[in-house]
Write a protein that binds this DNA or RNA. Structure first.
Lengths: 105, 105
DNA sequence: TTACACTTGACAATTAATGTCAAATATATT
DNA sequence: AATATATTTGACATTAATTGTCAAGTGTAA
């Protein structure tokens, strides 16, 4: 049940599946191959714009890729925090509260 | 059932409860009163170090305050994202996965 | 050994976070 | 109403993090 791939792994797998080189994709993103290489190996974070472009280039579902991307950003925020797990739970509670009261005056 | 205070509100309430002025507290934090004023009104984010000092100054539970602080940081990451809620859930799943495999080689 | 894809690390450029300061706005007191 | 004090606001400076380039290095295969 291998279920947890990083965005980088997803991007690399799908780039290779399409037979594209770093060069090809990074040109479309208008960045150096070095950065894309680092993104694929999780050494750098992509920007949101890059993720959206990559979804297009690699024919991946945008929403899905964006969710993966955002979830990694969230985890990055708390990766060195002992209380990270608890903070995540509290964040979800707050999120519920916010959504609940969204339409109210 | 008022349950959702911002960190800023918590800080201000407790500062006033202790009869302290912005001036007194900001001096201990070694920052301008302007910043503390903004932190209390959620116009700026505090740093982690400031939160820990504030917990001491105001006799608040450090872990608790830190959890509130981190959860706000998390929400800040996704505040403008339509997929924020979903990203949060995925982040929690990943977190579980990480914790589960923590002790493994 | 040449060619090609990718990786690495030093560093430059850009953007975001954090801070100061001085003037503006309460609010209360004489 | 004038003064005093606390807080707020906004323009700007400083610092730190992010994002990028470049050139040299590694690996692999023809």
């Amino acid at each position: 049940m291998k279920e947890n791939k990083t965005i980088g792994e997803i991007l690399r797998e799908n780039r290779e599946k399409k037979g594209l080189l770093l060069r090809h994709v990074s040109a479309k993103l208008d960045i150096d191959t070095a950065i894309l290489s680092k993104i694929e190996r999780s050494e750098r974070k992509a920007t949101k714009e890059q993720i959206l472009k990559l979804a297009e280039i690699l024919d991946l579902d945008k929403d899905n890729l964006l969710i993966q991307y955002l979830s990694e950003k969230i985890l990055y925020e708390i990766k060195d925090e002992a209380l990270g797990s608890k903070a995540l739970k509290v964040a979800e509670q707050k999120m519920k509260y916010i959504n609940k009261n969204k339409s109210r005056k």
